Simulated assay, not measured.
Amino acid sequence: MTLELHKVTKKYGELTVLRDIDLIVRSGELVAVVGPSGSGKTTLLQIMGTLDQPTAGTVRVAGQDITGMPDRRLAVVRAYHIGFVFQQFFLNPTLSAMDNVATGLLYTGTPRQQRRERAAEALASVGMSHRMKHRPGQLSGGECQRVAIARAVVGRPDVVLADEPTGNLDSRSGAAVAGLLRRLNETGTTVVVITHDDRLAASMPRTVRIQDGVIQ
């Protein structure tokens, strides 16, 4: 699935966060987006993932122009095409790992039992079968991020967008998560990683640098 941004600008009041962004991420790519804090990386990811709309410009997801698309249709695009991994995990502390992962299928109309079966498969793919009944408070940071990745991929999306996925992890756990993302890409999934980690970015085939809202 191709992501295309053409002349994308994003403003919050008088503040311009992104300006005239032209970017194409082709199906099957593994891309790192790097830049200092405040450079616009996260805003770029949110617009690529249809979580936010540009002030100006065009965004296409799998050939569809999603600019100005109603929220209900955007939710369908996300449910079937896009998975998200965030630095803060955003796991529900009251749910088990399995049920947290199963929430990734809530908007696809998948029956509950099938959601749980798919969640178990996704957890197995990230090496977390032995922890699927544990809640986030019983897991390490690296394990929580593995659960978050399982949730991102349980719907078998075309693209996974990861925002600082190793930012809250020690070096060993971070390396393991980076390895999971590479293996996911090897299966054909497009992966875009927002990171300030130059070593992580250097290990990826393509790097996009952004500063002051402009691609360098």
Rank of each mutant, 00 (worst) to 15 (best):
T16V: 13
L18C: 08
D20T: 00
D22G: 11
D22I: 10
L23H: 05
I24A: 13
R26D: 14
S27P: 01
G28Q: 07
G28P: 10
L30P: 06
L30W: 07
L30C: 12
V33P: 00
V33W: 05
G35D: 01
P36I: 13
G38P: 07
S39D: 09
T42K: 02
T43N: 01
L45G: 02
I47D: 00
I47K: 00
I47C: 00
L51F: 14
L51K: 09
L51Q: 06
P54L: 04
T58Y: 02
T58I: 12
V59A: 02
R60Y: 08
R60G: 10
R60H: 11
R60Q: 12
V61E: 04
V61G: 07
G63E: 08
T67Y: 08
P70N: 11
V77R: 05
R78M: 08
I82G: 08
G83M: 09
F86Q: 11
F86L: 15
F90M: 13
T94E: 13
S96E: 04
A97R: 01
D99E: 14
N100E: 01
V101P: 09
V101K: 06
V101A: 05
G104I: 12
L105G: 08
T110M: 14
Q113C: 06
Q113K: 15
R115H: 01
E117A: 15
R118M: 14
E121F: 01
A122S: 09
S125E: 14
V126W: 08
S129L: 12
S129H: 02
S129Y: 08
R131Y: 06
K133T: 13
K133I: 01
H134L: 11
R135M: 06
G137Q: 12
Q138P: 05
S140F: 07
G141W: 10
R146A: 10
V147S: 02
A148F: 10
I149A: 07
A150M: 06
A152Y: 09
V154D: 03
G155Y: 04
R156H: 15
D158K: 15
